[in-house]
Design a binder for these strands. Structure first.
Length: 668
DNA sequence: TTAGGGTTAG
């Protein structure tokens, strides 16, 4: 550092014209190398580079290798490193190795392979230090054939017995999904003795099997493994969780003697990924009780679980925890906090955290704009979008998706269309399936069905299930049976096993009282063994999250809940509420239809909240499907009758009910 | 001989 400062002060004293004429400061090779290691910016490197040239040390490959290697740590150094490499007359093994590593470490996988090929062509013999990085690039590129070619090279050079090379080769095969090759190599190497085989080789193979979904084989290997690393446990738990094998994951977790942060985080995240958010949250607090120290990642995962479950009080508690426990609030955590607050319907807190964040990046802006979009604040979303642009951050496809969604929720077709076109023309961002889905939704909900269909027919990519589903919902809402039938044909064509396809179709028939057709669809569904996704709702009372499924009778307070619900419905009726039975599928008597509606999970959650929560508390419900028209109507009455704020987040957006009306203005 | 390992993931 001292030397670096000296170099700077020296440079500053000179005018640019004289810059190149100052007297040499360093002549020693080790001095140069330590200078390079201490450099922090590209400017430092350039100045050292100048000194190197000045001292005619440019053919010293020790120095130049260090110069190139230093670019491994910073992306914008890479072009500089490349230019240094290109100017060296006779690059040797070390230069190639350092460049290939720098490229691989910075995700320039293709280039690192290209330079490996240049190396071969220049008759420079790669060594065992070349291959780990070449293999790393190969697996990242997911090119198995290339991996095999490289395997061949390794054999030719007799480098297979190097423990690093072998490890990376097995890792590469596992990562590109060639698990047979990986296993074969692994088995073969067992005869070479412990020196040739790193103990980590078990890990990479187990990870490979986990990722391929073959957790049976992974468990088998794990049993055989002589020395089990904490990380192996975590990888396996993660693999099991991803495969939905929650009980097995739990079993493994309990048999772990020392639970580290990674394994706790894996469990929290695993529960959350399996939609068991309340379990994820309780796992986090269990971790604290047992003296575990969460890291940033743990916090992000548990905040995500809070966001998904709409657990605002718990989210606030975790926010307090990080403020009081010496966490430096970095961008990852801020983004998770903004996301949590906005997904819990508290846009004020979200913008409060957001405003305090100094180093906002594209992600931070995106979650904020999404928050405004789902909460129905188009004006705010537009404001944030413009502010973001003014700070010089270039919007990407995701931000555009958020802003178009905001337009869609506000029913502002023209603005949404304007953003959609701008994205394509001004930013050259090609629309993805999601953009089209929002656009179809935007047109469809405002009743411009023909335009929606035209958009679908002119799409540059083949429309998928979601696109037709969006059109379908619009047709249903606007009672265009003909187009709905057309859309549902497409849906069934695309995913004959998807319950949604059938539900869609029976919905449209139910909407126009064609009960025979409804019955036909339902029996077809039964015959094909298609099971409808149950609707569920989450509610957080006094920091504890409870979930309800439709028709739920399993709760301790079940009787009271149903009584309370009857009471609400009864008095709502007195205020003019009419159950909107067109939302029920079955061809049953009116009274029974009301029963079917009555057991929707969001209604049960509402009744539960009215029994258990404090009189002035806002009731916050999270629902996994779109809220039905009847529940929406009852919520409005309930908010007026009880004087309570009710917030329902459904799969699409927020509904803030107050005094008998909803923030979505009945447009959703 | 200047240099090499797998690992939770928004």
């Amino acid at each position: 550092m001292k030397a670096l400062r000296l170099l700077f002060t020296n440079t500053k004293k000179h005018s640019p014209a004289k810059k190149w004429s100052f007297t040499p400061l360093f002549t020693d090779e080790t001095q140069f190398i330590s200078l390079i290691h201490a450099s922090k910016t590209i400017k430092h490197l350039q100045q050292i580079h100048a000194q190197i040239i000045l001292h005619q040390q440019f053919s010293n490959t020790r120095i130049v290798t260090q110069l190139i290697s230093s670019s491994s740590f910073k992306k914008n150094f890479l072009n500089y490193a490349l230019s240094i490499f290109r100017h060296s007359k006779n690059p040797n093994l070390f230069l190639f190795n350092s460049l290939i590593r720098a490229l691989a470490d910075n995700s320039y996988y293709m280039s690192s392979i290209s330079y490996f090929l240049v190396m071969l062509r220049s008759n420079i013999r790669p060594n065992s230090l070349t291959f780990p990085f070449v293999l790393k690039s190969t697996s990242a590129l997911q090119e198995g054939w290339l991996g095999m070619e490289i395997h061949n090279e390794i054999l030719k050079l007799g480098l297979l017995h190097d423990r690093f090379v072998l490890l990376h080769l097995v890792d590469m095969y596992a990562k590109v999904g060639l698990l047979d090759c990986a296993s074969q190599l692994f088995d073969e190497s067992s005869q070479w003795g412990d020196d040739a085989r790193s103990t980590l080789i078990w890990n990479v193979l187990i990870n490979g099997f986990c990722k391929a979904g073959n957790w049976g084989k992974a468990l088998e290997l794990f049993e055989e493994m002589p020395e089990k690393y904490g990380s192996t446990w975590s990888s396996l738990i993660d693999g099991l969780m991803k495969a939905g094998e929650i009980n097995r994951a739990m079993e493994l977790w309990h048999s772990m003697e020392e639970k580290d942060v990674v394994s706790w985080t894996t469990m929290i995240d695993g529960f959350s990924q399996n939609e068991q958010h309340e379990k994820a949250i309780s796992m986090f607090f269990e971790m604290l009780e047992e003296g575990g120290k969460p890291n940033d990642h743990t916090i992000v995962c548990v905040l995500l679980a809070c966001a998904k479950a709409g657990a605002l009080a718990t989210g606030v508690r975790i926010h307090d925890y990080i403020l009081n426990n010496g966490f430096t609030i970095k961008r990852g955590i801020t983004t998770a906090l903004v996301d949590m607050y906005s997904k819990c319907g508290s846009i004020e807190n979200a913008s409060c955290v957001f405003d305090k964040t100094e180093d906002k990046d594209l992600h931070t802006w995106t979650v904020m704009i999404w928050g405004c979009a789902i909460n129905g604040y188009l004006h705010k979303a537009l404001e944030f979008f413009n502010k973001m642009k003014s700070t010089g951050i270039k919007p990407d496809g995701v931000v555009f998706l958020a802003i178009i969604t905001a337009c869609s929720h506000a029913g502002n077709v023209e603005k949404g269309l304007d953003f959609f076109n701008k994205m394509k023309k001004d930013y050259s961002i090609p629309p993805t399936m999601k953009h089209y889905a929002v656009m179809v939704d935007l047109y469809g909900r405002s009743g411009r069905l023909d335009e929606a269909l035209r958009l679908i027919k002119n799409m540059e990519i083949a429309p998928d299930f979601v696109i037709w589903g969006a059109l379908f919902s619009a047709c249903r809402a606007h009672k265009n049976i003909k187009m709905a039938e057309y859309a549902s044909e497409k849906l069934l064509e695309l995913e004959p096993k998807h319950p949604g396809s059938y539900v869609f179709l029976s919905n449209v028939y139910a909407g126009v009282d064609r009960w025979q057709d409804v019955e036909k669809v339902r029996s077809k569904m039964k015959n094909k063994g298609v099971v409808k996704d149950p609707g569920w709702s989450y509610i957080e009372i006094k920091g504890k999250v409870t979930s309800f499924v439709a028709g739920d009778c399993g709760h301790d307070l079940s009787d009271e809940i149903h009584l309370k619900l009857n009471e609400i419905v009864k008095s709502a009726r007195e205020h003019g509420y009419m159950p909107e039975t067109e939302w029920v599928l079955h061809n049953i008597e009116e009274e029974e239809k009301e029963d079917a509606l009555g057991s929707h999970s969001e209604k049960l959650a509402l009744a539960f909240a009215l029994i258990c929560s404090g009189d002035n508390e806002v009731i916050r419900i999270v629902k996994n499907l779109k809220i039905c028209g009847d529940c929406h109507s009852l919520m409005k009455y309930a908010s007026k009758m009880t004087g309570r704020g009710i917030v329902v987040r459904d799969i699409k957006r927020f509904h803030h009910f107050k005094d008998g009306s909803c923030s979505c203005q009945d447009y959703w």
